[in-house]
Amino acid sequence: MNDNNTYKVNGEIKLEKVSHINTNINNSKQSVPTFDVNMRVDNHTRNAVLALARATADKRTASEMVSILVESFLDNMTPSKLKIYQDFLDVLEKKDRLGYKLKNK
Rank of each mutant, 00 (worst) to 15 (best):
K17Y: 00
T78I: 06
D3G: 12
S80P: 08
L82N: 08
I13K: 02
T56K: 13
V41W: 06
D87A: 02
E93A: 01
E12Y: 15
V41D: 03
S28Q: 04
Q86F: 05
V49Y: 04
G99R: 07
N5I: 03
F88P: 03
N104C: 05
I25E: 01
I84E: 13
V41T: 11
Y85Q: 00
R97T: 01
V37S: 08
T61L: 03
T6P: 02
N22C: 01
E12F: 15
L92D: 04
H44V: 14
N26C: 00
D90R: 01
G11T: 09
S28D: 14
D96M: 09
N27D: 05
I21W: 00
A51K: 15
L74D: 09
V18S: 00
N4Y: 14
F88C: 06
S28C: 01
L50A: 10
K17T: 02
N4R: 12
K94N: 09
N2W: 12
S19V: 02
D36Q: 08
S67M: 06
L92A: 07
E16F: 06
S63E: 15
R60Y: 10
N26Q: 03
N104R: 08
M77S: 06
A53H: 06
V91D: 06
S80R: 11
N5T: 09
N104Q: 10
H20K: 02
M65I: 07
A55V: 09
I21Y: 00
D87G: 01
L50H: 13
S31E: 04
V70G: 07
D3P: 09
V32Q: 00
N26S: 01
K29R: 01
N10G: 14
V9G: 07
L74H: 09
N26F: 01
N10C: 11
L74Q: 11
V70Q: 09
H20C: 01
Q86R: 04
N24T: 03
N38R: 11
N38Q: 12
K103D: 09
S28G: 02
N27K: 05
S19E: 07
D36W: 05
K94T: 07
K83T: 15
I21V: 00
T34M: 02
S80H: 12
M77H: 09
V32M: 00
M1V: 14
N43F: 11
N5V: 04
V49S: 03
D36K: 05
K95D: 14
Q30S: 05
I84S: 09
N47W: 11
R54F: 10
E93H: 02
D42F: 03
R54L: 13
L89Y: 05
